[in-house]
Design a protein around this nucleic acid. Structure first.
Lengths: 187, 187
DNA sequence: CTGATTTCTTATCATTTGTAAAGAATTGCC
DNA sequence: GGCAATTCTTTACAAATGATAAGAAATCAG
């Protein structure tokens, strides 16, 4: 759990009481590659922290597997649109490598907000940062070409490119695998 | 300010003390159509509530005017990626109609978070809802066709379509005005 | 009301991206 | 190692979208 609290420290410092309250609602899991951490159709009531490994949020659009986002070690992953709306998610979370994750029970976490304002503040800041990322990604999808988006990814997250099959990258960029192959060929 | 507090009530109920603390950092403004509420390049330190009228967030990509989003009356508008990062925004806020807005000083607001946990909670929930909207929009840009996106907008926000020039709608949908014309012609 | 400006549509052609299919390369498994 | 499955690339063709330009329609200013 050391890594988790180091991650938290980037956003907000917690009192010892807050830390142990969070610890009490966390569980550690090891998940095999390819397994679903959360299945499609399930309402999101868990926030995951990735200690080791990698995951993605995915869904199906007309039978096509679409990757909405990736998460590497030292990152949080959750299906926000379900977590904050209480509605079931059409998306699932799948592990892309053998991974160790910490599951934070969101229902209990939200209850802790009443007792520990510093916990509420911590997660407010974490999700504000996620919000900013999503807005930036929206901009890139709205008015950058597929090639620009690929070069962007190459520059900002070369890790992802190394560790993930290109077909997943393609749908993440909003294009087909064939189209991505073409872009890469024009070196 | 009645409308503002009615809007707040949807998310979190405030104590009277919290309400007057917010009132103290709000100012009302009337802005003419076409005027910039916030210019491009400015760091976002204000959250706006639209009492009457309409606004958009816009920026330039290769000299093309791009609309990132619209906001109607009874909605909040802010350049989130600047507000939460403290970095200057490449985006501006422009009024699309004669409008009455309430400007909330964000620097002072964030300070109020320490004294009034219910204010922190209120804005946490407001921005969580904005986050959810942005994630849903991302999905639509990532894997829906331009035509699907247009039909979606037609169904969910016919108001916007009635009140705004189509060229702004086009860039909002991530396409050119010519392309939008074509889609509309195939009735 | 009238002329000027802006917005919208239509047409043509170029470019990008999608689809389908086939083969090459890689990975996984026994 | 060697077979099977998956992933990646390439090709050919179709569909969607972009760029440009020209004209129609709507809006605005005086």
């Amino acid at each position: 759990m050391t890594r988790l609290f180091r991650y938290f420290d980037q956003y907000n410092t917690l009192t010892e009481g807050a830390k142990s309250a969070i610890l009490a609602i966390c569980t550690a899991h090891t998940i095999q590659k390819g397994r679903d951490l959360q299945p499609i159709g399930h309402t999101c009531r868990t926030i995951y922290f990735i200690n080791r490994g990698m995951a993605r949020i995915y869904y199906f659009k007309d039978d096509n597997d679409v990757t909405e986002c990736f998460a590497l070690e030292n990152q949080i992953i959750a299906r926000v649109e379900s977590l904050f709306s209480g509605k079931p998610s059409r998306k699932g979370i799948q592990m892309l490598e053998v991974s160790e994750v910490v599951a934070i029970n969101a229902t209990q976490l939200f209850r802790l907000y009443d007792t520990f304002p510093d916990i509420e503040r911590l997660f407010r800041k974490i999700f504000e940062a996620g919000y900013v990322e999503t807005v930036n990604r929206l901009e890139s999808l709205q008015f950058h070409s597929a090639e620009e988006r690929y070069r962007d990814l190459l520059q900002t997250s070369p890790d992802i490119l190394k560790r993930v099959p290109l077909k997943l990258i393609a749908s993440y960029l909003g294009i087909t695998p064939v189209s991505l192959s073409r872009i890469r060929a024009h070196h």
